[in-house]
């Protein structure tokens, strides 16, 4: 049982790290602010969800009330991030629009608008 939860949670944590890394790389590679937000805001949230989930899973291998509550709290953090993260992203995008920042477009699709 311990091995199983450890394995699962280890995989989840590693997967989360991959997402974190992906989000970070996206922040560098993507061409403009709006598209970077996609990777920054979203992939990070995903990474957080996976790592946290992994850790929450790991913590309940020793099933005591305190540990369950800790796991619940970790889940709460994830829920919280799930609510705030899109809102924050939205706020930033909104700010960008209001600041008059034009989204980057592919040269080819310029006419498409």
């Amino acid at each position: 049982m311990i091995i199983l939860t450890s394995l699962v949670s280890g995989i989840m944590i590693l997967a989360g790290l991959v997402f974190f890394l992906g989000g970070s790389i996206g922040m560098i590679r993507l061409p403009d602010f709006y598209s970077r937000l996609h990777s920054a805001g979203m992939l990070d949230t995903m990474g957080l969800m996976l790592t946290m989930g992994g850790m929450a899973l790991y913590i309940i291998h020793d099933l005591t009330l305190n540990n369950v509550l800790s796991a619940l709290k970790i889940i709460l953090i994830v829920v919280f991030i799930f609510i705030t993260s899109p809102t924050a992203t939205h706020a930033i995008v909104d700010a960008g629009i209001r600041a008059g920042m034009k989204p980057w477009r592919k040269r080819g699709s310029e006419a498409g608008k």
Binding site: A40, D44, G47, L48, T51, M55, A88, T89, I92, A99
Partner: peptide, 25 residues
């Protein structure tokens, strides 16, 4: 742009949250 900075800081915030829990471990 400033908004890039916002975004960066926000991302740092998210990662820090995970990192804090890991330090707890």
């Amino acid at each position: 742009t400033v908004l890039d900075r916002f975004m960066g800081v926000n991302a740092i915030g998210t990662q820090t949250t995970a990192l804090l829990i890991m330090i707890g471990f």
